[in-house]
Design a protein around this nucleic acid. Structure first.
Lengths: 172, 172
DNA sequence: TATTGTTATACTCTATAACTATA
DNA sequence: TATAGTTATAGAGTATAACAATA
């Protein structure tokens, strides 16, 4: 691929247009995307769906969804936090986090324990199996998923993309 | 495993530590995002949610969702197509497109008419009201929504972002 | 009285099978 | 037989209210 040097150098790389059949016969010609091609929200949604789909496939050996992977990552980086803290940090509502945790805990990947200081809280921790699974998942994500993505865009562009998306989520 | 060891291209998320609560005072300290900050899929999802949320708000006067707006745009660019063609182009399954069209048609924005050549098909067209609503929506999107997004990222970066997202959706 | 985890519930999206009317 | 639109339905994801235990 023609890897560009800077973020702003990325070109639309228009897929070579297929010529509309010269014969006046073809009933099913290509539809015009029109101004949809310029809609950032539309591109964002389509890219997100594709990336999640590829993530799922890449990480299939450990059977983790993007959401589950994000929970394990956060538990690893923040051992000893409670459900509310982990859930809200991920933008997950507390009621919806219960079933998610049930699934992870029933697979032996993490553990709930009542906090001695505040017996209302459930302290969350990865189990050894959870850490092992996370490590394996990280490797799959890096080698199967992100490597290909970085290859597609180029390293610099890939980092620029991540930075812009984070900025949108944070400041828009 | 700490990711901040070698890795030439990895830039430290934050070189200078913000004072971690040296004293045993702050009970509810900030959680570590950890490697979640490097996950493109996560950033993609959060950005997408934020952008759709802002779209909805910006376009509230005409009461259109991002999906409905994309349908109107596509109908405008491709008058006289049938439901299957419009739906599949947008990645919408035919069964799910029925209710969407019902909503738009009941608001008088578009119209289904049986094709004379193939009476199974419904030819789709925007009504005058649909075109007027679309025009108004486009203006709102441009001035309220995309203008602010472009301002946040800069024009060149904004275009680079769109190009990269489209590339991911198309080629990844 | 307020908060944590939880249940119940509802609404949107998405996905599949099957029906009808046409072809 | 196959296709277009449709219905029914089921599953995720997401949202709010309310309850028991605890503070």
């Amino acid at each position: 691929m023609t890897a560009s040097k800077t973020a702003a150098a990325v070109k639309p790389a228009r897929a070579a247009r297929k010529e509309p059949p010269a014969e006046a016969a073809a009933e099913t010609s290509e539809l015009m995307m029109g101004e949809l091609s310029e809609l950032l929200g539309y591109a964002l949604k389509r890219a997100q769906l594709r990336v999640f789909e590829d993530f799922l496939q890449s990480v299939a050996p450990v059977q983790l969804t993007p959401a589950q992977f994000s929970v394990l990552l956060l538990l690893d980086a923040n051992p000893g936090r409670n459900q509310t803290e982990i859930a809200t940090t991920l933008g997950i509502l507390r009621p919806n986090f219960v079933a998610m945790l049930d699934a992870l805990e029933s697979r032996g990947l993490c553990q709930r324990t009542r906090s001695p200081s505040d017996r209302r809280s459930h302290i969350l921790m990865l189990t050894d199996k959870g850490r092992a699974t996370l490590a394996r998942a990280k490797k799959l994500v890096a080698t199967r998923h992100e490597a290909r993505l970085t290859e597609l865009l180029g390293r610099d562009n890939s980092e620029a993309l991540l930075a812009m998306l984070a900025k949108i989520a944070r400041e828009f």
